[in-house]
Write a protein that binds this DNA or RNA. Structure first.
Lengths: 109, 109
DNA sequence: AATATAGTTAGCTGCATTGCTAACTAAATA
DNA sequence: TATTTAGTTAGCAATGCAGCTAACTATATT
């Protein structure tokens, strides 16, 4: 019952992790480059990175002593799809309500 | 620095809460109706509802002894927008890379 | 060979979250 | 008026999460 969405939304709940996504959206980066903008200690930051990797949002390859990270599209697209789906349902419902309201208005004629 | 997105994604990280959203997408419901599909004790469930309300995803009105909940579009739309924005950035980057790859291919001519 | 750099592992702390039960209020129904 | 129903409040226990430091490995650089 526990969806992929669980870990995805959990991962995105943290501003540090969202910032990492934003940075990676414009291209791959090393751990140090990703860490630079953030105040926190490196091990703490690494934990955030690992959450993103465990969720499949980020992948990385280590070459020499540098680990390069890049974004993985699928989970973000899936989450976006879920939100779009929800939205579709409630918007179509609102349209029906709207149509109902209009049909009631017509009683005035 | 703590965005609206923080609490939104945090709220959506829980499957119970996502189920509530799914249920509410097809129309308003009372607390009992929302609680019915879930095993957990009512006070526990109420806490989930409150998280959703605090985040602004759900609103509710109490009439008599019944509290009726309904969905609030704005936060979901905002989150969807954030995801779409990220996607746009990395997709345009991938397109540029693709164009670059093609221009390199042309050296064969 | 010595040093600096990049990342990693282990382990501690404090706070938030998620579950529970018990006991309560307020409104509807019999 | 007594009882049932709907929701709420208070408080406890277990767990998870986010932060830290200290100490370590492996790769470049001088």
């Amino acid at each position: 019952m526990t969806n992929q969405l669980d870990s995805f939304f959990g991962a995105m709940a943290d501003p540090t992790r969202r910032a990492v996504i934003e940075q990676l959206a414009s291209g791959p980066a090393s751990v140090s480059e990703l860490h630079a903008p953030h105040q926190m200690a490196l091990p703490t930051f690494m934990r955030h990175l690992r959450v993103l990797e465990d969720t499949g949002i980020v992948r990385s390859i280590k070459k020499g002593r540098v680990r390069t990270c890049h974004i993985e599209a699928a989970p973000l697209i899936e989450a976006q799809g879920w939100l779009a789906w929800q939205r579709e349902i409630w918007e179509s419902r609102l349209e029906r309500l709207d149509a109902l309201a209009k049909s009631i208005e017509n009683f005035d004629d």
